[in-house]
Simulated scan of single mutants.
Amino acid sequence: MSIKYTTKLGTALFSLALITSPALAHPPIPDRPADVEKTAFEADRADILAMAGNFKVRFDMQESTPWVSDYTPRDRKISGGHEVVKIVEDTGTKIVLQHLLVVDTGDSDFIVKHWRQDWEYEPEKILAYSDRNSWEYQPISEKRRNGRWSQTVYQVDDSPRYAGLGEWETQGGVRRWRSNWTWRPLARRDAVRDPVYDRYYAINRHSPMPNGWIHFQDNTKMGMVDGKLVPIVQEYVLNTYTKFDGYNVQAAEDYWTKTQGYWAEVRKSWETAFASNNGVVVEEEAQTGTVISADILEMGTKIANGEMDAGAAKKTARELIANATKPNAVESAQNAITNSPY
């Protein structure tokens, strides 16, 4: 993204925050009898799988409390749309959900391959945001992962965004999954403004409701001030997914039928990059996310419209991802951070 690199001190503080964060301090879940464990696991799976379907979505974003004296919170922003959420994979302990945004352009409906969420039961590691343009695998101890699910969120081109670990539980009669504290890069809505903050420190919650589900985000927007990483403002985001079929659901179904093979290859190419580098460093920019995102998305649209051969698109996508994440590109990005004058 088009934002300044951290200072060496800032990077050190950022790393220290990762080490000392409450994210790593959740107490272990005690071992449970096998029948109790099985019942809890099946209930968790049911709640995750219930996020699939056809929805009307409402996005409600509100900056609230400023943590520095010279910052004025932005006005509340409410928007919405229609999304089809597809189950891409379900192995029992891993569930992959793909969001497809259906945009009514007036003359036709345009499909945007939106975000993706992967859920994994008792993962040995998660792909966490570690610093500017950088994600790395973080190991999860057996005690810490016991009974918990990770949620890893990917951007529109299947590059990583953030990951968290949490337990599905019932409190006050409400079922919810609550993540640990997680770091994440700026969303496009903020990145395009070149704000004083440059990352989020956040907690995510997901809860089923009678006619859909909600995703609540408690975001602390962080930035560098006088060489120190400090909180700038608090933001609350409530995304509400209400079951709804009154839009062109078939357009999303048709898009996915034509492009799912292509997107499977894109996911595989990213996984190869993650495995090769114990994570990934890839350059981002404000408008599109990664610098290759627009090209990868456009090829999906061309396949759906019959304007491009899927085989050729897969080959190009593999090359784009390999070149954007190859070791010399990774080394260059890391050196840029280390040698930055800012």
Rank of each mutant, 00 (worst) to 15 (best):
G10M: 11
T11N: 05
A12G: 13
L13H: 07
F14P: 00
S15V: 14
L16T: 13
A17F: 13
A17G: 14
L18K: 15
T20G: 14
S21H: 08
A23I: 00
H26E: 12
P27Y: 07
P28E: 14
I29K: 09
D31C: 14
R32M: 14
R32V: 13
R32T: 09
A34R: 08
D35H: 05
D35I: 05
K38D: 15
K38N: 15
T39V: 10
A40R: 11
F41D: 08
E42I: 00
E42G: 02
E42W: 04
D44G: 12
D47Q: 15
D47S: 14
I48W: 04
I48S: 03
I48D: 08
I48C: 07
L49K: 00
L49M: 11
M51I: 03
G53K: 05
N54T: 13
N54A: 15
N54C: 13
F55R: 04
D60K: 03
Q62W: 00
E63R: 01
S64K: 13
V68Q: 09
S69L: 05
S69W: 02
Y71E: 06
Y71G: 08
Y71N: 11
T72P: 12
T72F: 06
P73C: 03
P73T: 02
P73N: 02
I78L: 11
S79H: 08
S79Y: 10
G80F: 02
G80C: 03
H82A: 09
E83N: 04
E83M: 10
V85S: 04
K86A: 06
I87T: 11
D90F: 00
D90G: 00
T91W: 11
T91N: 12
G92P: 08
I95F: 07
I95E: 09
Q98G: 00
Q98P: 01
V103S: 06
V103P: 05
D104K: 02
D104H: 01
T105L: 14
D107A: 08
D107F: 07
S108C: 04
D109H: 15
F110T: 01
V112K: 08
K113Y: 00
W115L: 08
R116H: 02
D118Q: 07
D118A: 09
W119N: 04
W119M: 07
W119Y: 15
E120W: 00
Y121S: 04
Y121K: 06
Y121R: 12
E122N: 10
K125Y: 01
D131S: 11
R132Q: 09
N133Q: 05
S134R: 04
S134T: 07
S134M: 04
E136S: 14
Y137T: 00
Q138M: 12
P139C: 12
P139M: 13
S141Q: 03
S141N: 07
E142I: 15
K143P: 02
R144G: 12
R145W: 00
G147H: 10
Q151D: 01
Q151N: 09
